[in-house]
């Protein structure tokens, strides 16, 4: 694994993004600690330049780190399983990586989410010259540092672990888990049903909220859509894994989310889970923009526009997700007259 060119590509992207982020974060520290917008002394002028540089560096770092995360995702989902004995998809790779792999993915996700939040605040801050969000933005940018460091640490651990891994059982483990016990299977079925109905209901509620946000961006809470979106993303992922994926694989008892990324299924996983990621990110953008609107009236206008833009983003992502997640199931039902499990 250590010799795989994609591993090198991942590390080069992560190191370059990390360098940009570190440079920006160092400048943001000065802004966070000493920002005094009412002063025009030489130190404040230097801080203003630092704030501008940190913003540019942060945007570039976010781009580079997103690229690194995508390279890692491509590696896990499409490439590295060929280096792991017994692996057929990302499930095998994550098995080989142990818990470090999952931790790395979580910390990468949290880091990018924080930086995305910073990007939203910076985008609002730049709309007015008062710089009311400059210090908060700097604080948020710096707060991504520990998560990014943990992401890098666990990525290193996970990739080094793959180097010496024995044969993994990959999707056989998924089959085994499903077929092992009737009680567990029944629990899974009921969980899947709950998640399916919650994802449908939550999705409908979220869509309705987004339509309201598009029409009245300065009314209602921003926290509510964010909470619903985060809960919906969990439910939708479980429902897709347990129910929706079967219509891609056209077999029951293979609830593997990683196989959806394979070329055999047209890389549908990238688009489906991409849709979920967009919903979560934009709902957080709505929450932050709403908070900004309430706290800083000077930014109410730009914040309202940002809320509308994010609402459109969520609506588009949810339509895409629904079409890709439910489309094959509906097509199956129309073609055969029954669902895959035999129920009419």
């Amino acid at each position: 694994m250590i010799w795989h060119p994609l591993t090198w590509a991942f590390w080069v992207a992560a190191a370059t993004g990390g360098l940009l982020y570190a440079t920006g974060a160092v400048q943001a520290v000065d802004v966070m600690l000493n920002w005094t917008p009412a002063h025009a002394d030489i130190d404040q002028l230097r801080r203003e330049r630092h704030a501008e540089s940190a913003a540019l560096l942060g945007h570039w770092a976010l781009g580079f780190l997103t690229a690194a995360a995508l390279l890692g995702l491509v590696g896990v989902a499409l490439v590295w399983h060929r280096m792991v004995p017994g692996a057929m998809c990302g499930t095998g790779v994550l098995q080989a990586m142990g818990t470090d792999g999952s931790r790395a993915m979580i910390f990468w996700g949290v880091s990018l989410l924080i930086l995305h939040g910073w990007r939203v605040l910076d985008g609002l801050d730049v709309q007015r010259p008062q710089g009311v969000l400059t210090r908060t933005g700097a604080r948020l940018m710096i707060s991504a540092a520990p998560f990014f460091l943990l992401a890098v640490f666990y990525s290193w651990q996970a990739l080094m672990r793959v180097e010496t891994v024995p044969t993994v059982s990959c999707c056989a483990a998924v089959y085994d888990r499903v077929l092992s016990g009737a009680s567990e299977s029944a629990a899974l079925k009921s969980l899947a049903a709950i998640c399916l109905w919650f994802s449908l209901a939550g999705g409908a509620a979220l869509l309705a909220l987004m339509v309201l946000k598009i029409r009245f961006p300065d009314r209602g809470s921003g926290a509510m859509p964010a909470i619903i979106a985060v809960l919906w993303s969990f439910a939708a992922t479980v429902a897709l894994k347990q129910v929706g994926s079967a219509y891609y694989y056209q077999v029951l008892s293979h609830p593997c989310p990683w196989c959806l990324f394979l070329p055999d299924y047209y890389g549908a996983g990238f688009f489906i889970f991409g849709g979920v990621a967009v919903v979560v990110m934009e709902s957080i953008a709505i929450w932050l923009a709403d908070r900004t609107r309430r706290r800083y009236p000077v930014l109410a206008g730009p914040a309202g526009k940002r809320i509308q833009r994010s609402a459109w983003g969520i609506v588009t992502a949810m339509i895409g997700f629904t079409m890709l997640a439910l489309g094959p199931a509906i097509a199956w039902r129309l073609r055969t007259g029954v669902w895959l499990n035999g129920s009419p």
Binding site: P5, L6, W8, A9, A13, T16, L19, F64, A67, A68
Partner: peptide
């Protein structure tokens, strides 16, 4: 993709 990441990204940075 690998070339873009290994050469393109450091160059742009």
């Amino acid at each position: 993709i690998e070339i873009a990441a290994m050469v393109g990204l450091p160059f742009l940075a």
